[in-house]
Amino acid sequence: MSALILAMVVLLAVVLIGAALVAIKGKSLPIAILSAGLVSLIASVLFLVLAAPDVAMTEAAIGSGLTTFLFFFVLSRVRGGEND
């Protein structure tokens, strides 16, 4: 049981770091924003493993939900600026 959880945490950590690298180095800005949302979503699963259900709910609703949409609202308003 404990080994299974440990394997899961290792997997989540690898995905987290990969998504974070895509978020700062990704070619297109929409993919970078989506990867930042993915970082928050995976982190919320990790919070659940770390026995923090309150924090997991907040991170899933606010960090990966609303923040991603804020980015996309601004991105659609600044057409042409994304490649500067």
Binding site: A23, I24, L29, A32, I33, A36, S40, G63, T67, F71, V74, L75, V78, G81, E82, N83, D84
Partner: peptide, 10 residues
């Protein structure tokens, strides 16, 4: 890019 900096901060 300023938007990319904000993504990195988050």
């Amino acid at each position: 890019n300023i938007l990319r900096m904000i993504v990195a901060f988050s």
